[in-house]
Design a protein around this nucleic acid. Structure first.
Lengths: 156, 156
DNA sequence: GATGAAACGATCATTTA
DNA sequence: TAAATGATCGTTTCATC
């Protein structure tokens, strides 16, 4: 689940195809990478077992969901409050609009990526959930104008 | 593909299930949300057509892929170089290890999320791809200690 | 890792509410 | 108009090579 794992060219091809369309049928997936369906099935199952594949998720269009504003919230905690971290994470993840949380090095302790209906909803989220907490010293909002995902899988 | 779209409770339930496991069979998906398989199939197809669903992706374990270091690179561009943006984005996306790029408001123009083998690979990526570019004024590296994903889908 | 067959699911025309 | 039924067709899956 966490050590580096040997991946041959078939594994890498499978992962690349699943990155492109995770709901492809096993038969089509097999055809695309040039193995038999049974082999393909066993390979994908093995990649899940070995922890290379964590799961499969739908990619949603935030605008279609009604969210027009995406942002990063850069959060600085007050010093020496490590005990507050787990409940902060848990409660923040439960908050609608919160997409990802990153615990970082550097001047900002956390970055929270959010996606909300509009600027009012952003303001409400920041004021009601973040700035009211004693363990939070500062919150900076950086709006996301545009984003791009992807990049090849191979070695760095 | 970009305006807000009416989603009823069945749509939201489907999206929640697909967020949890995008490779669930149509039959199981139908059973989980309490509709007939044919209805389920039509609903998911409609969500794709209306652009609510962008696609389905595999979620990989970076450590299992051999990547032990994840980081954000906060990048400041030199002023008035908008023409450099599209080629910068394109070439950065092609670079192995680059996962996401965000164009932001605030002091940092871009945030690039990367995932690489080790600190040497990170150093190489930063020095070879970023700091050598004339259009880039500064790069700050913030290592990611830990991250969490998720949160409910509903309205904000 | 491939083959081939049995079991199962996806899909669509039709029916029903 | 939207969802369920039920038949057909294709896919998944596993024992075997």
């Amino acid at each position: 689940m966490s050590a580096a794992i040997e991946l041959d060219s078939v594994d890498l091809a499978l992962l690349a195809e699943l990155q492109n369309d995770a709901r492809i049928s096993n038969k089509d997936l097999a055809a695309r990478v040039g193995v038999a369906p049974s082999t393909c099935l066993a390979r994908v199952q093995r990649l899940r077992q070995r922890g290379v594949i964590h799961g499969f998720r739908v990619v949603l269009d935030e605008k279609a969901l009604g969210n027009t504003v995406e942002a990063f919230l850069a959060i600085q905690m007050t010093p020496h409050n490590q005990a507050f971290v787990p409940p902060f994470i848990e409660e923040t993840l439960r908050r609608p609009g919160v997409r990802e949380i990153f615990l970082l090095t550097g001047p900002d302790d956390f970055m929270v990526r959010v996606s909300v209906q509009d600027l009012n909803a952003l303001q409400r989220l920041v004021l009601e959930h973040f700035t009211t907490r004693r363990e939070i010293a500062a919150v900076q909002t950086r709006l996301i104008f545009q984003s791009w995902a992807g990049g090849p899988i191979g070695p760095t």
